[in-house]
Simulated scan of single mutants.
Amino acid sequence: MRFHTRKWIKPEDLNANSTLFGGRLLEWIDEEAALYTIVQLENHKVVTKYMSEIDFRASAKQGDIVEIGIEVVKFGKASITLSCEVRNMMTRETIITISNIVMVNMGEDGKAKAHGKTEVEYVKDRL
């Protein structure tokens, strides 16, 4: 799994227990999944269709740095299924895992559109 993004846990990211608010973490994951999909499918019109079971394994506290990792599970006709792991950058302890995040490629008409992709591409290989 490649870890693309790091986030620094700040006071505004905390819940009433002074640990990372799960909703904030899910927001970061959704954004990372969207950005990853936009780059892979070369289309800025993508939407999140589905997230499988979310497994919170550990907490994070103010000052921690977390890394968000994304990898492709499979390519569908108009979708891409990703998996995600978020871990503490310093300790490597897993904070959360999500087995399946389905992102859908959209056309100008707002409907699902086939993307024609079958494997992961890296921007450096496109240049």
Rank of each mutant, 00 (worst) to 15 (best):
D64A: 05
R87N: 04
I96S: 11
L35M: 14
E12D: 13
T97C: 07
I9K: 00
R2M: 11
H4C: 08
E31D: 15
G110T: 01
M1P: 08
A33L: 15
R24L: 04
P11Y: 03
V120T: 12
I54F: 05
V102H: 11
T48H: 09
T97L: 02
Q62D: 04
L25E: 07
E12S: 08
K113T: 02
K77I: 05
G22P: 10
T48V: 09
S83T: 14
Y36V: 13
I101L: 13
E42F: 07
E42T: 12
G107P: 06
A33D: 10
L26Y: 00
R126H: 02
G23Y: 13
K7P: 05
T48N: 10
E108Y: 00
N15S: 13
S59P: 06
T19M: 10
I9Q: 08
M51N: 12
D109N: 14
K45R: 15
V73M: 04
E27N: 11
G76E: 01
I54N: 10
E119D: 09
D55Y: 08
K74F: 08
A114K: 04
Y122S: 15
E53C: 06
F3S: 12
N88M: 05
V47W: 07
K7Q: 05
S18P: 10
R2H: 11
E121F: 04
G116L: 07
K7L: 04
N43P: 15
A114R: 00
E93A: 10
I95F: 06
S52N: 03
I80N: 00
H115S: 11
I80M: 01
N100I: 01
N105D: 05
E93Y: 02
G22R: 13
R92F: 03
L127G: 14
S52A: 11
V73I: 12
T94K: 04
D109K: 03
R87P: 06
D125C: 08
E93G: 03
D30R: 15
L82Y: 08
L20W: 07
K7N: 03
K61D: 06
Q62C: 11
E12I: 04
L82E: 11
K49F: 08
F3H: 11
H115G: 09
T5N: 12
L41R: 13
N88G: 02
V39Q: 09
I54K: 07
M106N: 11
N17D: 09
K111M: 03
M1I: 06
L82G: 05
G23V: 14
L14H: 08
I54P: 13
H44W: 15
M51L: 14
G110M: 01
M103K: 12
Q40D: 11
G69K: 09
L25Y: 06
I9P: 13
I95N: 13
V120A: 10
L82C: 09
E32H: 12
E71S: 09
H115W: 05
D125M: 05
S99F: 13
V73G: 02
L35C: 10
I101V: 06
